[in-house]
Computed example of a mutant assay.
Amino acid sequence: MFTGIVETIGEITDLTQDAENLHIKVKSSLTPELKIDQSVAHNGVCLTVVALDGDEYVVTAIQETLDKSNLGELAVGSSVNLERAMKLGDRLDGHIVQGHVDQKGTCLAVTSMDGSWVFTFQYDPSFGNVTIEKGSITVNGVSLTVVNSKEREFSVAIIPYTYEHTTFHAIKAGTTVNLEFDVVGKYLKRLSQGYF
């Protein structure tokens, strides 16, 4: 379980294909605090630490993960948003994030707003996901509030701190992102479909 509050940015230092799996080596300031079998969110995708080596660690993404996320588009030198699993009893500064990406989305536009930015994303509604005005959404692992909800797109407002301390500064029109829709909203939609 995560909160969507990114702790740091990691750098991809190696990518190794092994059948359908992708072994991802990440250099991060968090590495000394990690343990084998620990969960870490990478651009919002929960992956298990399988190896540690100095200031680098390795996680493995299976084909299902690569199909539903942007991790298959990573290259050596790419940056990823990182968050360790939340501790029970800590403040929940973001929202409840599972680290299970629902689908990919595409950035349609980035608008500068005199000190902040509005990012607009499009997604495929056939997966059954929805956003609501002032509801929660996770984009590349960052917990955000929806400011403009439409059937197949939404916008989020980004403050300077988030822009500078996450990979949002690298997102532009056409960039593929990972989307995790609000878990409460997903359950409510599923329950209402069963009754109507």
Results as ranks from 00 to 15, higher is better:
residue 114 D to L: 15
residue 166 T to G: 00
residue 84 R to V: 05
residue 169 H to L: 07
residue 165 H to F: 14
residue 80 V to G: 09
residue 92 L to N: 09
residue 132 I to H: 04
residue 87 K to F: 07
residue 111 T to N: 14
residue 93 D to K: 07
residue 78 S to D: 05
residue 119 F to A: 02
residue 118 V to T: 08
residue 139 V to D: 00
residue 173 A to R: 15
residue 83 E to H: 10
residue 68 K to A: 08
residue 60 T to G: 02
residue 62 I to D: 13
residue 112 S to A: 08
residue 70 N to A: 12
residue 146 V to C: 04
residue 67 D to Y: 10
residue 155 S to V: 01
residue 78 S to A: 12
residue 173 A to C: 08
residue 105 G to S: 06
residue 113 M to I: 06
residue 127 F to R: 13
residue 150 K to R: 12
residue 140 N to R: 02
residue 112 S to M: 06
residue 146 V to T: 00
residue 93 D to Q: 11
residue 177 V to R: 08
residue 140 N to C: 08
residue 152 R to K: 09
residue 166 T to C: 03
residue 178 N to K: 02
residue 167 T to P: 10
residue 82 L to R: 03
residue 159 I to W: 00
residue 76 V to D: 10
residue 159 I to A: 09
residue 107 C to W: 05
residue 151 E to K: 11
residue 121 F to D: 00
residue 116 S to T: 12
residue 112 S to Y: 10
residue 164 E to S: 05
residue 140 N to K: 05
residue 159 I to T: 01
residue 172 K to T: 15
residue 178 N to R: 03
residue 150 K to W: 10
residue 159 I to F: 00
residue 123 Y to V: 04
residue 139 V to G: 02
residue 175 T to K: 09
residue 164 E to F: 00
residue 167 T to Y: 00
residue 179 L to M: 12
residue 124 D to V: 14
residue 84 R to D: 06
residue 154 F to G: 03
residue 131 T to D: 10
residue 138 T to G: 02
residue 130 V to D: 07
residue 144 L to Y: 04
residue 89 G to A: 13
residue 122 Q to F: 07
residue 169 H to Y: 14
residue 127 F to L: 15
residue 82 L to Q: 01
residue 144 L to I: 02
residue 75 A to H: 14
residue 76 V to R: 13
residue 178 N to P: 04
residue 113 M to Y: 00
residue 101 V to F: 06
residue 176 T to E: 09
residue 122 Q to S: 13
residue 97 V to T: 06
residue 110 V to T: 14
residue 126 S to L: 12
residue 120 T to G: 06
residue 172 K to W: 13
residue 71 L to A: 02
residue 97 V to Y: 11
residue 127 F to Q: 14
residue 166 T to W: 06
residue 77 G to H: 01
residue 129 N to L: 15
residue 80 V to C: 13
residue 176 T to Q: 15
residue 133 E to H: 14
residue 138 T to M: 03
residue 81 N to D: 04
residue 153 E to H: 14
residue 124 D to A: 14
residue 103 Q to D: 05
residue 162 T to C: 05
residue 84 R to Q: 05
residue 140 N to M: 01
residue 111 T to A: 11
residue 85 A to G: 01
residue 63 Q to M: 09
residue 108 L to T: 07
residue 161 Y to H: 15
residue 165 H to N: 11
residue 133 E to A: 11
residue 102 D to F: 01
residue 137 I to Y: 00
residue 67 D to K: 11
residue 70 N to C: 12
residue 146 V to H: 02
residue 94 G to M: 07
residue 87 K to H: 09
residue 172 K to V: 15
residue 111 T to W: 01
residue 126 S to E: 14
residue 102 D to V: 03
residue 81 N to R: 03
residue 174 G to H: 13
residue 155 S to N: 07
residue 91 R to D: 14
residue 143 S to N: 02
residue 100 H to L: 15
residue 169 H to R: 15
residue 124 D to W: 09
residue 65 T to D: 08
residue 124 D to N: 15
